[in-house]
């Protein structure tokens, strides 16, 4: 389990190794505060959705899942993508409502990010990797937490760098987005060094 966790954070970092969720990564990383908020929200969503999707996958979609109903050959694997997206959207909606009702202060801090997370390719990507690697539900939970943590780590580091770069002296055309792309490229090159570390 620990190697799944470590790999999810470093070697297989969703943002810097697989480049998932990059649109949000680039757009919401101008300040460390907002990046931190988004990171926390992603960790929460990932930790919940990946194991739930594992349950849905193994309980409903794989070939043989309907054996108890006398339909052993039914294979709904092709619905995987849509099912995962649906589950993620539903969970995010429920999370938003729960936060609003029971943790209003958290809701004020994180609430505006939740719609962004529904369509974040990192969240869907985490579930798709879980499906590809056929994790059990407990492995999926560990992987969900780890991959969310990795993404959060990446965006907070990135925001910290961007905050510093904000007032540095650079050509007008390079300010902002162009420098963000370049820094991301360099950051991911750095993270690729982890790929060499044997687990």
């Amino acid at each position: 389990m620990t190697d799944i966790l470590i790999a999810a954070i470093f070697q297989e970092n969703l943002a810097l190794a697989y480049f998932l969720g990059i649109c949000t990564f680039l757009a919401i990383s101008e300040r460390v505060e907002t990046a931190f908020g988004l990171g926390l929200a992603i960790i929460a969503v990932q930790t919940i959705t990946v194991p739930v999707n594992a349950l849905v996958l193994n309980g409903v979609l794989v070939e043989g899942a309907w054996r108890w109903a006398g339909l052993p050959e039914v294979d709904l694997g092709y619905l995987r993508l849509v099912a995962f997206i649906g589950v993620i959207a539903a969970i995010v909606q429920v999370l938003e409502m729960t936060l609003d009702r029971f943790f209003p202060r958290l809701y004020v801090a994180l609430g505006s990010f939740l719609p962004l997370i529904t369509v974040n390719c990192a969240v869907l990507g985490g579930s798709l990797f879980m499906a590809e690697r056929q994790y059990s539900v407990s492995e999926a939970a560990v992987y969900g937490f780890g991959s969310g943590l990795g993404w959060a780590l990446a965006i907070v580091s990135f925001a910290a760098i961007r905050e510093r770069l904000r007032y540095s002296d650079m050509p007008a055309g390079m300010r902002g987005l162009a420098s963000a792309f370049l820094v991301t490229g360099l950051l991911s090159l750095g993270f690729s060094a982890f790929a060499r570390v044997p687990l």
Partner: peptide, 30 residues
């Protein structure tokens, strides 16, 4: 790819200078 796109954006904004960001500006996402 990131580095190339970054350089491309720089080139675009150097020519079409109205796209360049000022230090006070936040991106639409923010």
């Amino acid at each position: 790819a990131f580095i190339i796109i970054g350089l491309l954006v720089w080139a675009i904004r150097s020519y079409w200078t109205d796209q360049a960001e000022t230090t006070a500006q936040a991106t639409p996402g923010e």
